[in-house]
């Protein structure tokens, strides 16, 4: 082996090794030597789509990755540990380049921010169904349903908020539950009962009889008044006259009253009204049956919609890609959901 080839070999080995280490450096092995902070959170919803290595963002800025996902089955809680590259957190001093904050300062900052409402929530990343964890300030933080201290977390704890999709699902489910709780059947039954009883009254023969009785009574009253006029003598004519006049006045008054009653009763035309009312009622009854059916259908639709939303939540990619396994039930549900 001559000097020339020795040189060649040496050069090759040095260059290739240099490229090797440069590649390691560029591709971020150096990250391993950077200081890492850790935070943890606890969630009770499904972490479908989240995996070790999923990114963690602070108000949209990528700052780390999920390092561990654990299940505490007794509490039905999932613990997510995150590794935070604190080199993204800087302090600016006047006239100097930004400096990365020390790890203790970072932990303090997180603890402070948690008091002010810093929360983790899972967000959908792109269309692939993968998720990332977003750290952000939330105005009204609902307290967790479990005692965080029981878990004895070694890392800084950041509470979690339900993710957007689980929020959405929650609201829709609540609305639908309210809809579902309305007693459509009871309402329609009661309406029917009322209508039936009205119908019965109007149709009964007593109703016509009462009107006839009223007519007869009025006629009787007129005859009595005429007889009373004939009986009146001349002696006591004056007295009687006055009385008669008074009576006459009174009778006139009664007559006019009677007439007006008669007129009114005539004007009412009860028969016709009763007829109309009856036909209205039968329509109403028919309508009420249709209403029943409609309500039943709405009920079904609600179930299907809930199913659909749960499905989408568990596999958001299906929104774009369609369902993986064609399932007749779910298909129907989706169909129903769209129709309504």
């Amino acid at each position: 082996m001559n000097d020339n080839s020795k040189f060649k070999l040496g050069l090759f080995i040095i260059l290739a090794t240099a490229v090797f280490f440069a590649a390691l450096f560029i591709l971020g092995t150096m990250d391993r030597f950077k200081e890492k902070a850790h935070i943890s959170t606890l969630v009770s919803e499904s972490v479908q789509g989240l995996s070790v290595g999923s990114s963690v963002k602070y108000q949209g800025v990528p700052i780390g990755n999920v390092s561990e996902i654990m299940i505490y089955p007794t509490d039905n809680v999932i613990r997510i540990d995150m590794e935070i590259n604190i080199s993204k957190f800087k302090v600016q001093q006047a006239g100097q380049a930004p400096v990365t904050i020390p790890i203790e300062a970072f932990n303090e900052h997180v603890a402070e921010a948690v008091k002010k409402g810093l929360c983790c929530r899972m967000e959908l990343e792109g269309i692939t169904g993968g998720k990332y964890i977003e750290l952000q300030m939330v105005k009204d933080t609902s307290p967790p349903e479990y005692d965080v201290k029981e878990f004895g977390l070694a890392y800084t704890y950041v509470p979690s908020q339900p993710s957007l999709i689980s929020d959405l699902r929650g609201s829709v489910t609540a609305i639908l539950a309210k809809l579902e709780s309305i007693d459509y059947k009871g309402i329609s039954d009661r309406t029917n009962a009322v209508l039936d009883s009205i119908n019965e009254r109007v149709n009964s023969p007593k109703f016509d009889e009462t009107i006839d009785n009223v007519n007869a009574m009025v006629n009787e009253a007129r005859k009595s008044i005429e007889n009373l006029e004939k009986l009146t003598g001349s002696d006591v004519k004056d007295k009687i006259d006055t009385i008669s006049q008074n009576v006459s006045v009174a009778v006139n008054a009664v007559e006019s009253l009677t007439k007006s009653v008669e007129l009114e009763i005539k004007a009412i035309e009860f028969g016709k009204i009763a007829e109309n009312f009856r036909s209205f009622l039968s329509t109403a009854i028919r309508t009420s049956k249709t209403l029943d059916e409609t309500l039943f259908n709405v009920d079904n639709g609600v179930d299907a919609l809930i199913e659909l939303i749960q499905y989408i939540d568990s596999d958001p990619a299906s929104l774009i890609q369609g369902k993986k396994k064609p399932k007749t039930d779910a298909d129907d549900a989706q169909g129903d959901g769209k129709k309504r």
Binding site: M1, S5, K6, K8, L9, L11, F12, I13, A16
Partner: peptide, 16 residues
């Protein structure tokens, strides 16, 4: 070692 260096040369730099 001599063969080793020889083949290093033929397999490595000569193939670049």
């Amino acid at each position: 070692w001599k063969d080793f260096l020889f083949y290093m040369n033929t397999c490595g730099p000569d193939g670049v």
